[in-house]
Design a protein around this nucleic acid. Structure first.
Lengths: 346, 346
DNA sequence: GTGAAAGCGCTAACAC
DNA sequence: GTGTTAGCGCTTTCAC
C-alpha cells in the first residue's frame, strides 16, 4: 500500500468551480437549510458526487467555533463498569450527533488532570464528561479547574454547587440490599466494602450500616472487610470475614466481582448458599446470573447513567449557544434489586 | 453556572501583541525548535503565562494537515474483551502523543460503515483502527473502502493483502487448550464454540477439531455446541452438550464467560471438576482465577494487542509523512496457557 | 533571529 | 437565490 502525502482532499472550492457557483452556495447545499434553486442544487450535488467531496468537519469546527465533539475522561477502562458507562455515553452521543474524544486517566495524581483537560480544550470540544471516580475526598476534582470555557458533567460524585453531576444512588442500593437480607431472616449481616477512599464504596458501606442500625442491630468492626473491587481482593476479604465473624449468615458485597469470590469460597468450604450464608452483590453484571448459585444483586444501568450525562451536557451546550443561562443539575439514578438464588431463603 | 458564548479563546495574535513580537515568533516559542533569542523567548513565555494562552490543536491540525488524532471503531464496547483492547489502544496512543476519536458500531450492516469512516475522515484523523470483528466472511470489511486517504489497521481478522492486520492467534490457543486436555488424560473432549459467523469462533473450533483429529480421535457433531459468547448462552450450550455427549470428560469453551456457566452447571449437577469434567476457557479475564474451581484458560493480552495496532498505525503514518512507501504488516499475537484447578487432574 | 503574507477548508454577515 | 468579504487560529514560505 502506498499512500502519498499528496492524497489531497477535495475542497469546497473545487466543487464550487466544477459546478460554476460560489463556495457559499455549495455550503448551502451541503448544510441543507437556506434555499437554493432546485436547478443549482442539482448541479452542485452532481459535482459533489463526481468529485467525491466530503465536507471537513474540522474546518467547520474552526469557523463555527463549535466541534460537535465531546471530551470524555474515564478511569479504569479495563474494568467492566467504566466501559459500560462509556458505552452508554457513546450511544447517546451518537444519537445526538456528537463524536467522542476519549482520554483515560490512570492514576489520581493531580498533575495529569490539567493536562488532560487542556488537551481536550485544545481540540475545541464542546463539553466534557468527567467519569473519574472521586478518591480521597475532594482530592481529585475541586482542584484548580475553577472556570472552564466549556460545560462539564461530573459522574459518580457527590452533588456539588456549580456543577452538573450524574451519579448512581449507591446509598439507596446498599439499603435495599441490606433490607433484603433482613427480610430473608438474616441475623448477622456482614459487608465486604470497596476501597475506602472511593466515594461510592463509602456510600455503600454507610447504607449497610445505617440499615442495620435502624433495624436495631449493632454494627461491629469485625463485621466488615474491604477489598479493591477485584475478585482477587474479594477472596482475601471473605476469608478474613469468615474467621472474624463466624456467626455471619448474610453478606452484602460492594460489587459483583468480589461477590463471585464469596460464592467460590463458600463452595470450597461447603457453606450452603443461601441457607447458611445469603449473598447479595452490587452492579448487576451480566455474568452474575450465571454464578453458582445465581447472584442476587443491586442492578444499575450504566447505559442510562452514561446517557443521562450526555443529555445534561448537550442541554448545557445548547443553552450556551442560545445565550441562555445554564442550569446545573444533579441526577441520581436509581438502582434496582435483582433477586436470585444466592439470597432466596424461602 | 453561566457560561457565555463570549468566553473567548486567547489567540496567538494576542500573545504576539502583548509580547511585542510577531505571531510567528510566538509560534516558534510554543513549538520549541528553531531558534529564538533567549530574551525574546522570555518575553513571549511571560505573555503566554499571563494571558493563559493555550495553542489550538484544532487550528494547527487544519494548517498542518495533521491532527495527531486516531480514529478507533469498536464493536460491543459493553463487553470486557473489546474494552480491554480499547484500553491498550488508549495507552499506546497516549504514549505516542495521539488522541483517540472513538466511534462504536452496533450491528454489522454495511451502510453504517461508510458513514462511520466518513465521520472520522471529516475530522481529519491521521489513521484508523478498525476493531470490529469480522462476521459472515468478508461481509463486513473488503466492502467498498477501496482507497482510504489515511492508513488503517484492521484487528482480529484474517491476513489480507494490502492491509495491516493485528490478530490474536486463536487457532494456536485452541490447539494449546485441547492438547492440554489430552495431556490430562481426557478421552472425550467436547467444545462450546462462539457464534459461527465470527472468524475467531471458527478458528477456535478448528483448532480444537484439528488437535483431536491429529491425536487420532474422531470428531462428531454431537461433541460441540455453540453459544453467543454470553454466560447465558453458555448455560444453554452445556446443558445440551451434557445431554448429547454424556461421556464427555473434558471441554474446551471458547470464552471465559461461557466457561463460567459450565462450572456453575457442573456444580449444580454435582459433576466433579476436573475429575469428571475438565474445563478450559479462553481469554483470561481477571475473574476466571476466582471461579470455582479456578479456571484454566488461554490467556490473551488485549493491552498488547491494542498497543501493537497503534504502533503499526503510527509507523505507517510516519512513513507517509516522510514520503516513504508504507509496508503493511500482519501481526499475530501469541496467547498463553494458564493452568489452574479446573483442568488439573494430577 | 524575526516578520509579512498567504493559505489550511469552511461559514457568518452582508451585499446584490 | 446567490456572491463577496472577512474571518476562525495556526503554520509555512520566503523575505529581511
Amino acid at each position: 500500500m502506498v499512500l502519498s502525502k499528496k492524497n489531497k482532499r477535495i475542497t469546497i472550492k473545487e466543487v464550487a468551480d466544477a459546478a460554476g457557483v460560489s463556495m457559499q452556495t455549495v455550503s448551502r447545499v451541503t448544510n441543507k437549510f437556506s434555499y437554493v434553486s432546485e436547478e443549482t442544487r442539482q448541479r452542485v450535488e452532481e459535482a459533489v458526487e463526481q468529485l467525491g467531496y466530503r465536507p471537513s468537519t474540522l474546518a467547520r469546527s474552526l469557523s463555527q467555533q463549535r466541534s460537535f465533539t465531546l471530551g470524555v475522561v474515564t478511569f479504569g477502562l479495563k474494568y467492566i463498569g467504566p466501559s459500560r458507562t462509556l458505552n452508554g455515553i457513546a450511544d447517546k452521543a451518537d444519537e445526538l450527533g456528537y463524536m467522542l474524544l476519549t482520554k483515560k486517566l490512570d492514576n489520581f495524581d493531580t498533575n495529569g488532570i490539567d493536562e488532560v483537560i487542556e488537551s481536550l480544550l485544545a481540540r475545541h470540544v464542546d463539553g466534557i464528561i468527567w467519569d473519574v471516580p472521586e478518591v480521597d475526598e475532594n482530592q481529585t476534582w475541586s482542584h484548580g479547574i475553577k472556570s472552564l470555557p466549556v460545560p462539564i458533567v461530573l459522574m459518580s460524585m457527590e452533588q456539588r454547587p456549580g456543577y452538573s453531576v450524574v451519579s448512581m444512588d449507591s446509598y439507596l442500593g446498599a439499603q435495599m440490599a441490606t433490607q433484603h437480607l433482613l427480610d430473608q431472616g438474616c441475623k448477622n449481616i456482614g459487608h465486604i466494602a470497596g476501597p475506602q477512599d472511593w466515594w461510592e464504596a463509602r456510600l455503600r458501606q454507610q447504607g449497610w450500616r445505617d440499615t442495620l442500625t435502624k433495624a436495631g442491630m449493632q454494627v461491629l468492626d469485625r463485621q466488615w472487610e474491604s477489598g479493591n473491587w477485584s475478585s482477587a481482593s474479594g477472596a482475601i476479604a471473605i476469608e478474613k470475614l469468615l474467621a472474624c465473624y463466624p456467626e455471619m449468615d448474610g453478606v452484602f458485597v460492594a460489587n459483583d466481582q468480589m461477590a463471585l469470590s464469596v460464592l467460590s469460597e463458600a463452595c470450597r468450604r461447603g457453606i450452603k448458599v443461601p441457607n447458611q450464608l445469603a449473598v447479595v452483590g452490587f452492579d448487576g453484571i451480566a455474568e452474575s446470573a450465571n454464578f453458582y448459585p445465581p447472584l442476587t444483586t443491586i442492578s444499575q444501568d450504566p447505559q442510562l447513567l452514561g446517557g443521562r450525562a450526555v443529555e445534561n451536557l448537550v442541554e448545557m451546550i445548547q443553552a450556551i449557544q442560545e445565550n441562555k443561562p445554564t442550569a446545573t443539575q444533579f441526577s441520581l439514578i436509581q438502582p434496582t434489586l435483582e433477586i436470585r438464588e444466592s439470597s432466596k431463603r424461602f
